[in-house]
């Protein structure tokens, strides 16, 4: 068993209204100096040893992320 993390983020050129809303709220809470926020998704998968990197990449590309609007990174953590 291994833990695999997939981070999915909106592409830089894609408008991220949620991230903007978070950024705009920070000064109202008294936090200054944060110039930009981008909001994405973080997945943690518990994976059998039989699952290879190619399968993980396919899971990310075809399901967890939408390649039209999102970038993603797959990484194995804490072996």
């Amino acid at each position: 068993m291994a833990r695999v993390v997939v981070d999915v983020m909106p592409k830089p050129e894609i408008l991220d209204p949620q991230g903007q809303a978070v950024a705009n709220a920070l000064p109202r809470l008294g936090f200054e100096g944060i110039t930009s926020v981008r909001q994405g998704k973080h997945f943690e998968l518990e994976v059998d040893d039989s699952v290879d990197d190619a399968a993980l990449e396919k899971i990310a590309e075809t399901f967890l992320a939408n390649p039209v609007i999102e970038d993603w990174v797959v990484r194995r953590v804490g072996a």
Binding site: Q18, N66, V68, I69
Partner: peptide, 17 residues
């Protein structure tokens, strides 16, 4: 239909939230 690849592109959160 966009997710299925029958049409190109994607729909995202409204710009005005």
């Amino acid at each position: 239909l966009c997710e299925a690849g029958l049409l190109p592109g994607a729909l995202i959160r409204n710009s005005g939230l």
